[in-house]
Design a protein around this nucleic acid. Structure first.
Length: 576
RNA sequence: CGGGGCAUAGCUCAGCUUGGUAGAGCGCUCGCUUUGGGAGCGAGAGGUCGUCAGUUCAAAUCUGGCUGCCCCGACCA
């Protein structure tokens, strides 16, 4: 490609509002342009890189036995109604009506379509297992697009879906994907870790997320400093510190004026925070079928812990959770700041296992200015649900080995889910086994954010001058810079390089050397070749790696083989 | 959806406080010069100042509504 023909300018300054460095560089180098919040055009260079990423993904999923297909971007609402997600997902779903007034959905994902295809195509265990995948746009009307490409509303994903007869089959395909995704990121030169994650709107039983670690990431991850434990904070667990066992004491009411917070309460009474019960009121949106209602939840964790809202939402299968207002709290007879589970009726009480096990806690008295000492679960109140709803945090003990957990930030670039029969059961995708018995097909889904990988690559591979592409994903392998005196030699070399299949961006523009070198650095192709009267006097073509400072002169006749060798060497590094 | 900010030329911004002929740098066009790290000189093109309304003799400037974009939070691949 001749640079004089490209339909984009490099920008000396990034557009206002682009704050993330990688995104700024993608804009300045002419890889992407924003159309609207969270909606982008990928210009030639950016699209070339996307295609490189997709080619790697195809190879790796094909190697698992995957069959590529293409499912639609626009779906009839009926399948989403069948799976219930039409009702479960709110504003994030793009809905419109066609000219006949039929409800339509812009694909947020393709589980429904795969399930629909499966129930029509698969009748027998003989037709299982299957692995289908596609690379397709998705629309998720994110409440807040952010950080350029990282949180877009329209984005490209690789989705693969597995169909199995049983859990053992799913398990096999799940872990095959687990490894294949690591290979994909590796070949794209994006370092990632896999963490255990929440299943979110996908549903299912087991899920991992692939995370690119960066301070601009939106997810907080807890990693063990010693063992392999890694989890999204949303579901991370920890070994909760035990409180000393002691004889159960009688309940005692104490005056605690102005002690509305755990901090103040513990200080006032001179007890550790772990001897108190923290009451948190959340209002949950619960949906059953098409009906949707709000429900006040009384959550209790030990005073030295924080509530994890994801865990609570999962425990009660809530659609959404928000902190309750003081009015809502008073409406059920509780007193904000002095709330107690004792004597409250008609409200769901969810207690963290550590709080339920701890003896003689200080809890509210449902009376302003008073608390109750020696409150014990089982004797004084009963939980509707006892489970882990406490948040793990940096410094807590690893649930596996007991060592310290640390917190880091990450961008989610992929996720894999064991869906099980979540969709196939509700939508009636079944097969007959050897004995003629009908079973739901067991499904897995595996998503990898292609455009998000592009964004993370730009974030990871750059320096002060611009992007620094790994060869496996660079839009072109070679940046050929023609300067005064090198015109004829350069155009000849340009054609020779193309003939042997080397991808070359040829800067044939009538620009000053400074402009050309700066653009080359900004665009960041791995190998730069410069031809000028000076380089020719020095013996040939000047060669420089984008990532290194040194320059060498290659005799013209050796250029092709040497560049080929260089590309091969760089490719090998990536695969390492 | 809460809180905050911004909207003037392709890009980055000034002008607004105190209303009166719309500006700069970069980019773009033409000419000459220059040619190894974002060149110089000269001549040009380019903006209904986001939008609608209000105040006023007069609005980029003051007021209100709307829209769009960005940031923080809630939320999320």
């Amino acid at each position: 490609m001749r640079m004089s023909q490209l339909m984009n300018q490099t920008l000396r300054e990034a557009p206002a509002g682009a704050e993330v460095e990688g995104y700024r560089l993608l804009l300045r180098a002419g890889f992407v342009r924003q159309q609207a919040a969270g909606i982008f055009s990928y210009l030639h260079l950016g699209y070339r890189t996307l295609q490189k990423l997709e080619a790697i993904m195809r190879q790796e999923i094909d190697a698992l036995g995957g069959q590529e297909m293409l499912m639609p971007l626009v779906h009839p609402a009926t399948v989403w109604q069948e799976s219930k997600r039409w009702y479960e997902i709110d504003d994030e779903m793009g809905r419109f009506q066609d000219k006949n007034g039929r409800d339509m959905v812009l694909a947020l994902s393709h589980e429904e379509i795969v399930t629909d295809l499966a129930r029509r195509e698969i009748q027998s265990y003989r037709q299982l297992p299957r692995l289908v995948y596609h690379i397709q746009l998705k629309w998720r009307d994110d409440p807040r697009p952010r950080a350029g490409l990282i949180r877009a509303r329209e984005f490209t994903m690789l989705d693969s879906y597995t169909l199995d007869a049983d859990d053992a089959g799913l398990d096999k395909q799940y872990w095959a994907h687990y490894e294949a995704y690591f290979r994909i990121y590796g070949r794209c030169a994006l370092p990632v870790i896999a963490v255990e994650s929440d299943v979110g709107m996908m549903g299912g039983t087991l899920a991992h997320e692939y995370m690119y670690l960066t301070p601009i990431g939106e997810d907080t991850l807890l990693l063990c400093t010693v063992c392999e434990y890694k989890a999204n904070r949303q579901i991370a667990t920890c070994r909760k510190t035990a409180v000393p066992d002691e004889p159960i004491l009688p309940v005692e009411k104490v005056a605690t004026p102005e002690a509305k917070t755990i901090e103040a309460l513990a200080q006032f009474l001179g007890v550790p925070k772990s001897k108190t019960a923290k009451a948190v009121f959340m209002t949950a949106t619960v949906k059953e079928g098409q009906a949707k209602s709000e429900k006040l939840i009384f959550a209790i964790v030990r005073g030295d812990m924080e509530l994890n809202e994801t865990k609570l939402a999962n425990a009660i299968r809530a659609q959404a959770l928000r902190p309750s207002t003081e009015d809502e709290i008073r409406a059920v007879g509780a007193v904000p700041g002095y709330a107690s589970p004792i004597g409250l009726g008609g409200i769901m009480v969810v207690v963290d296992d550590a709080a339920a096990a701890a003896p003689n806690l200080v809890a509210g008295a449902n009376e302003a200015g008073y608390h109750l000492k020696n409150v014990n679960h089982g004797r004084d109140y009963t939980a509707d649900i006892i489970t882990d709803i406490a948040a793990a945090a940096a410094g807590d003990a690893c649930p596996h080995c007991g060592e310290r957990l640390t917190a880091v930030r990450g961008v989610e670039v992929g996720n894999i889910f064991k869906l099980g029969a979540r969709y196939t059961e509700t939508m009636g995708a079944t097969y007959l086994d050897e004995s003629g018995v009908s079973h739901p097909i067991i499904m897995g889904s595996y998503g990898l954010g292609v455009t998000r990988v592009l964004a993370c690559l730009a974030e990871h591979h750059h320096d002060d001058q611009g992007l620094v592409w790994p060869i496996s994903v660079a839009p072109y392998q070679v940046h050929l810079v023609m300067l005064r005196g090198g015109e004829e030699t350069a155009v000849t070399l340009y054609h020779q390089l193309q003939q042997v299949g080397i991808e070359v961006l040829y800067d044939d523009r009538d620009e000053s050397p400074g402009v050309k070198f700066n653009d080359a650095d900004l665009i960041g192709l791995p190998i730069r070749l410069t031809i000028s009267s000076r380089s020719l006097q020095n013996g040939g073509v000047e060669c420089k790696l984008r990532r290194a400072a040194g320059r060498t002169i290659i005799p013209l006749v050796d250029t092709i083989p040497q560049v080929q060798a260089m590309i091969a060497g760089l490719m090998e590094e990536v695969i390492e």
